[in-house]
Design a protein around this nucleic acid. Structure first.
Length: 463
RNA sequence: UCCCCAGUAGCUCAGUCGGUAGAGCGGGUGACUGUUAAUCACCAUGUCCGUGGUUCGAGUCCGCGCUGGGGAGCCA
């Protein structure tokens, strides 16, 4: 096939002239007497390009007027200034071929569709304006994440997808097994004998790469993971999916304050990146998805991130002139309503809540000297609440083992994790960030199913 | 998993007091020398989510189920 020019690249020129070939899919076709207009989009940008087809120049004009919305087209012609409003340039077509026609029952109409309907045709929705913008943003953000950590000499580590450690309490695991479901071998007690499974033990899909990440941090200093994560929770909300991507940096020789500094720098970097590198998409979100999203993202990038102790946060909530559904007291895990009140009403911007009661946090978090809190942090932002959760990890073997005992977490399966505290254990800290929640935050999209190409949620694994 | 709401044409929805189904968009056909979700005219389209019940009669009322959405919990 003829060499094609990406439409985004083509429209980047400063003046008309020159002949080009573009390939893409028909978004709209308008016929008016002896001239027809086709908006062709190749996914490289939002606008696409207007093709101008003239009866006098194209012998196949009549047939071309009958192609359907959604058809694949390759068109060559001259780039000219457009005499009409709506676009700067257009392509005056001299040569065109219908690569793949589209029948009139093409499900994407030239009108607004509900996100619910578009989810049912997830194989076609990337051809819409909204999902084009979402997935271009997603792709660029993914690359920006590597850039952020790469520039800071963080080592990118691929932690395992299949894992045997399920003792983090981070959520239900999807089981990975090759045992036959109906005739799995049993032991004497009648239970399934996983010693005869593929890995000779019970295994599942990872719920977090953190524990393995810590091991690499104890060798490379600063590391990060960025990969798929799985939770078999029956969560039916716009913010949860069974398969999502998580970013987990981990730093050796670092404490909770260093951790918060990194998180702040990271969020600021992503906000600025979205505004600068995805301007067309952000403008689209601002206009069609969430009015004011650009201003919101901009203000977060500019804001000073407040740091507040959990105990102080509770004091603020206790004297809040609002009736919370969950009454506030020290020891309570903050609910979404509390988090949003803190970031939206008390602070009016991003806020780190630090040093939570130990009983509401995970076993690996470092015990503070007061004996009742741990060095944990959550970053709360307006509109969504928690966007980042992290902590300084317990690097003292005796305290870690004692905590595991208190929580009845078996030590044997985590012998390697405990070993990292035995030789050259250093204070270290890290955090976890759900990639999709970052995309939602930056785009204003309100449902996680609409920022994942083919989302996996309870009862949904099609496509 | 719990609570609330919804399910009617391809899509988005209306449907009054229970009386046998409509609009806009999309699609088809035609008109139109430059359109911008083009415009204008004409045409076609229904398992009213399923199931059981109440009733002379159910899209409409009631029970159960399924599906979707929102909220909560869990969390990222």
């Amino acid at each position: 096939m003829a060499r094609r020019t990406r439409i985004a690249q083509l429209l980047f020129v400063t003046k008309s002239g020159g002949t080009y070939t573009v390939s893409g899919w028909v978004r709209s076709i308008r016929v008016s007497g002896d001239v027809a207009f086709i908006v062709l989009n190749d996914g490289s940008n939002l606008s696409g390009i207007q093709l101008v087809l003239e009866r006098s120049r194209l012998p196949e004009f009549e047939t071309l007027c009958r192609i359907g919305t959604g058809a694949a087209l390759q068109a060559g012609g001259e780039l000219t200034d457009s005499p009409a409003a709506g676009q700067r340039f257009e392509l005056r077509v001299t040569d065109v071929s219908v690569v793949g026609d589209a029948a009139p029952d093409y499900p994407l109409q030239k009108k607004r569709h509900s996100f619910e309907y578009l989810r049912s045709i997830a194989h076609l929705r990337p051809r819409t304006n909204t999902f084009g913008a979402v997935f271009r943003l997603r792709s660029r953000l993914a690359q920006a994440i590597h850039r952020f950590f790469g520039e800071r000499d963080f080592l990118y580590v691929h932690t395992p997808i299949i894992t045997a450690s399920d003792c983090e309490g981070a959520g239900e695991l999807f089981r990975v097994t090759t045992l036959p479901p109906n005739s799995a071998p049993r032991n004497e007690g009648g239970e399934i004998d996983f010693s005869r499974d593929f890995f000779a033990q019970k295994t599942g899909l990872t719920v977090s790469g953190q524990l393995e990440g810590e091991l690499f941090a104890q060798a490379f200093g600063d590391i990060y993971t960025f990969g798929p994560t799985f939770r078999a929770e029956n969560s039916n909300t716009p913010r949860h999916a069974a398969e999502f991507w998580m970013i987990e940096p981990e730093m050796a020789f670092a404490d909770l304050a260093d951790d918060a500094d990194l998180a702040e720098e990271f969020v600021r970097f992503m906000c600025l990146f979205a505004l600068e590198a995805c301007g067309e998409e952000m403008a689209f979100f601002d206009q069609h998805i969430e009015k004011g999203v650009m201003e919101r993202v901009h203000s977060v990038a500019e804001a000073e991130f407040v740091r507040m102790d959990y105990t102080e946060a509770i004091r603020h909530l206790e004297k809040a002139p609002v009736a919370f559904q969950y009454p506030v007291h020290w020891g309570l895990d903050l609910q979404t309503e509390h988090e949003r009140y803190l970031t939206e009403q008390v602070v009016g911007g991003p806020v780190f809540v630090l040093n939570y009661p130990k009983d509401i946090k995970a076993f690996y978090m470092r015990r503070n000297d007061d004996g009742r809190t741990v060095a944990a942090m959550d970053l709360l932002v307006p509109k969504v609440g928690e966007i980042i959760g992290g902590s300084q990890r317990e690097e003292r073997l005796d305290l870690l083992e004692r905590r595991m005992q208190e929580l009845a977490i078996a030590r044997e399966p985590l012998w390697w994790y405990l070993d990292s505290r035995r030789w050259g254990s250093s204070p270290h800290a890290g955090f976890g960030l759900g990639f999709e929640r970052l995309i939602m935050y930056l785009s204003g999209m309100e449902n996680i199913r609409d920022v994942i190409p083919f989302p996996r949620t309870p009862r949904h694994a099609e496509f």
